[in-house]
Design a protein around this nucleic acid. Structure first.
Lengths: 201, 201
DNA sequence: CCAGATATGTAGTGTTCACTACAGATGTGG
DNA sequence: CCACATCTGTAGTGAACACTACATATCTGG
């Protein structure tokens, strides 16, 4: 039996375009018409490949978190907890205002509140953000074990904090804050992590 | 000439219900059917009173910021910049997880990204958030003048920072974080403001 | 009690939405 | 070159959306 007509579009390239539409308009604000036009395909191709609108979102999120994961690995590779926070938040100030992408973060812009029928979309995004937070927490646990963070510090709370600041910066970026404003926030935010760091000998 | 049939519903009570629907589902996720049912009125009454869906949102935002303004006045009445930040962020941890309201903050849940035709909704919310930030900034400017904050500190940056943390906490709350998790974030966040405070004599 | 004015409830309006039926096109295995 | 499988484009589908026409009800001023 034959293997059928091969697909004429590249799934990853198409996903990049879909990602941008979701990023800019949110899950509910993005229409199939906008998505198909950006992806350069027709609705039947979209549904054959991704199932439905939510399936397309998940695929776009997978791609987003995969690309972001590479960067996060560099972030947690910083030598100290303070440097991890700085590299993370300063990097976010850059990325969230990169004119090559829509402002803000897809994991926030994608949809914080949704209508009936899409209630699980916000949870889907939250689950991806939690992955980042877990990665930070693990790194801070290590920092505490290494004596980099004070014995009284709470790595999980620190990770939650850095994650919260990241999200807040994303919302600011999407509503017009420029890169310099975000950098100022990052600089202040890092000082809280510094306050939890052991004194240098 | 007569003055017409009087309205049979209370506008403020109805707005409270509409507020909750926008809060829980966002602007685009909230339907007129949900809104009218929650408000206990029919569509013609809604349109006669608020113009259209966006007009209703603005009225709900007005009411939200008015109620919130009372609390913000208490926040900035705290004696020091550090206490202002603590009162603000700890209060937010309480309010965003108050079971009497939907989780999070209407100024975030209302809509961060919107589809074509509602592009100005996110800006509308951002403008209201900016009011809070301005109030914080003014308070921190005063704190600096009073010697409460270090001469090297940047009141505008500090206000932006506290505002960003607030927003981040709101997103966390809406995606399931409990009150204790938010309190932990607040405790850490306050330390950055403390780092900008002058040493006590 | 009547005229004018505004509110209300019923029952729609046109539009846009996510999604798909179907026919033709393009590939593979035998 | 034929049977089969999968993709593609055209052209829709029913449902849900924001919004409203209209008849009726309830008020005030005279």
């Amino acid at each position: 039996m034959g293997m059928g007509r091969p697909r004429e579009f590249n799934a990853e390239t198409a996903l990049d375009q879909a990602m941008e539409v979701f990023w800019r308009h949110g899950y509910e604000g993005a229409t199939i018409a906008q998505l198909t036009e950006a992806m350069g395909i027709n609705p039947p191709s979209l549904y054959a490949c991704f199932g439905n609108k939510e399936g397309l979102l998940k695929a776009a999120l997978d791609r987003y978190t995969k690309l972001r994961g590479v960067w996060m690995d560099e972030v947690v590779a910083a030598p100290t907890a303070r440097d991890v926070a700085e590299r993370m938040l300063m990097g976010i100030a850059e990325k969230q205002t990169d004119p090559a992408n829509p402002p803000g973060c897809l994991l926030v812009q994608g949809g914080i509140a949704c209508g009936s029928g899409s209630e699980n979309v916000p949870f889907e995004l939250a689950a991806r953000r939690a992955q980042n937070e877990d990665q930070l927490r693990d790194r801070f646990v290590r920092a505490k074990a290494e004596g980099d963070l004070k014995p009284t510090s709470d790595p999980a709370a620190l990770a939650r904090y850095v994650s919260a600041v990241s999200v807040g910066m994303g919302v600011m970026a999407s509503s017009g804050s420029d890169r310099e404003a975000l950098r100022q926030v990052a600089v202040v935010a890092v000082q809280a992590v510094e306050a939890q760091s052991a004194d240098r000998t």
